[in-house]
Design a protein around this nucleic acid. Structure first.
Length: 514
RNA sequence: GGCCGAUUCGUCUAGCGGUUAGGACAUCGCCCUUUCACGGCGGUAACACGGGUUCGAUUCCCGUAUCGGUCACCA
């Protein structure tokens, strides 16, 4: 029935479950899928795997879409954009999975099971007590359970007619070697005895992940399944499903990505680690409506999407060159599955900050200005966009985040009310006093443009005339002007402060520091 | 515990039989500078262990150890 995919167009999908905010590892998975799709000139699909009604979280789907959009991952087909295989929400595709599940039963590859949760627990407890090799529903134990393999057909029919809940389970072969060739890991062999009789269709009529993802990937003509390593143990089961469904000849290729690990200690990266390390694990801020908790996001923390993407791309992949900074287009150009790492990658937020620093300094001053203006206003200061842009130019190379700029520029906005005592004690001496006085007088007489270059010239001339070595008094000058011993370029700072205010500050310093 | 996977500086990694084992983050030092940063230069720092294969193993094979993942009517 199914002929080989003639078009050979690469088609990949990102298939998250809307159970909450998208984890940063999920963003990386989406990114790798996207890079691969674009690199191969293929398509990127977005499918929502919402087959667990109990775990459904309102708003999660919108969050996922907004997050992908923010990082710059464009969806070609799928939820939010539509496409030929709609609907892309699995809860709306119920009938499709049921049809395939019943087909498997009819073909003898699956069966109905009526066991209650209590009965299943009892079975597992019994097997564990008996020290059985594996406490699972499988080729051996299924013959002692309540299912269409053990019950008389009439009984099965009666139960179904009576509306008794049932599931459909895969009739996993007893002894069979299942192989799959993972693009990242090579051949992986698993014996079918290690795979239990997985539930394919739940008693609520919805499929489990295993059935749904295989059916959808086939129907949507997915050519490559790129997903997290946590799926590797069930990948052989999926291979088995493709075989039983008769789709093995068009089965997609698999690539199981290494996991994102905790910064220190053992295990995969969790929200808790992020809180401990004081960094986000979600792309966007998430407001939990039930608990009222707010989980921070990379966006709200001031990370640029380009920086996050660059950082994430390098967590588990490397082009093999010494270039570190890559735009999305460059990543697409350089990307290849072969260069994906096999081992898990520890999450190092310092590296993320460094990437952000690299990108922040490239942002135009005018783009940074509104944020600075906003921060200034929040602190109670007026700030024109022109002034904010100048401040951006003054400080952007020094910071990791746009939000760090205003705090460093704070002294620009007000005449010092206090002066750093340590600097005062060590730097405020007779020469400093004379220097500030001489500079003030020179500035009063100066009538040209009040720009850094001219201010610098005025200052050095004044110091020369006063016979003072400029380097000796610069920190005192800074103290006089800003009240602080440290900060960005002083001449530019004065330019931004303006002539009048500069004079006011010099004057006040002479009065208050003596 | 069974099954599957992984293992190069503290961290992310390059390496695909012969290298002074390279880069980046972090760290330390020096320089630059009006200070603090930025930046520049340099330093410390790694092939988990044991067997093979080979003239030669970080690289190939087998064990061991360690770490991770997974064993639901969750994805």
């Amino acid at each position: 029935m199914n002929q080989t995919n003639q078009s050979s167009e690469v088609r990949v999908r990102f298939a998250p479950s809307p159970t909450g905010p998208l984890h940063i590892g999920g963003v990386r998975t989406a990114l790798y899928n996207y890079l691969f799709a674009r690199k191969m000139g293929g398509k990127m699909l977005l499918r929502i795997e919402d087959t667990d009604q109990n775990r459904f979280v309102p708003g999660a789907e919108d969050y996922i879409i907004e997050a992908l959009n923010w990082v710059g991952i464009q969806i070609d087909e799928g939820q939010s954009v539509g496409g030929p295989d709609a609907p892309y929400r699995q809860s709306e595709r119920k009938g499709i999975y049921q049809k395939e599940a019943f087909r498997l039963v009819n073909e003898g590859k699956a069966y109905y099971a009526f066991d209650t949760p209590d009965e299943l627990d009892a079975m597992r407890a019994r097997l564990e007590a008996a020290n059985a090799p594996a406490a699972q529903y499988n080729a051996i134990t299924r013959m002692q359970m309540k299912n269409s393999l053990t019950l008389p057909p009439a009984d099965v029919q009666a139960r179904m007619d009576a509306g008794e809940p049932y599931v459909i389970r895969l009739k996993t072969p007893h002894k069979e070697e299942v192989r799959l060739n993972d693009l990242i890991r090579g051949w992986v062999n698993v014996h079918s005895s290690a795979i239990d009789d997985k539930v394919l269709l739940k008693s609520d009529g919805l499929p489990t992940y295993h059935l749904a993802n295989v059916v959808d990937d086939h129907l949507m003509k997915i050519t490559h399944v790129i997903r997290g390593e946590e799926w590797l143990p069930s990948a052989p089961l999926h291979v088995l499903l493709y075989r039983y469904l008769g789709w093995e000849d068009t089965m997609p290729q698999f690539a199981h990505l290494p996991l994102l690990l905790k910064p220190e200690g053992n295990g995969k990266l969790s929200k808790r680690d992020a809180d401990l390390g004081n960094f986000p694990v979600f792309p966007l801020q998430w407001n939990d409506k039930e608990t009222g908790n707010v989980a921070r996001g990379f966006r709200e923390d001031g990370y640029l999407p380009a920086a996050l993407v660059n950082f994430l791309a390098f967590l588990g992949w490397n082009p093999g060159t010494e270039q570190e900074l890559f735009s999305m287009d460059e990543l697409i150009e350089a990307f290849s599955i072969e260069k994906i790492q096999k081992g898990g990658a520890r999450f190092d937020i310092d590296k993320a900050k460094w990437f952000n620093h690299q990108y922040i300094r490239q942002v135009a001053d005018s783009e940074l200005a509104p944020r600075i203006q906003m921060d200034a206003q929040a602190a109670g200061f007026d700030c024109s966009l022109e002034k904010a842009a100048k401040i951006a130019a003054l400080l952007k190379e020094r910071v990791n985040f746009a939000g760090d700029i205003f705090p460093e520029a704070r002294t620009i906005f007000y005449t010092p009310d206090t002066y750093d005592e340590t600097i005062r004690a060590t730097k405020w001496n007779d020469d400093a006093q004379r220097a500030v006085g001489a500079f003030r007088d020179a500035l009063r007489a100066y009538e040209g443009d009040f720009v850094a270059e001219n201010i610098k010239h005025t200052l050095s001339e004044a110091m020369q005339q006063a016979g003072i070595k400029q380097g000796k008094i610069m920190q005192a000058m800074r103290l006089a002007l800003t009240g602080s011993g440290t900060g960005p370029d002083l001449m530019l700072t004065m330019e931004i402060i303006g002539r009048d205010e500069t004079l006011v500050r010099l004057h006040q310093a002479l009065e208050r520091l003596n």
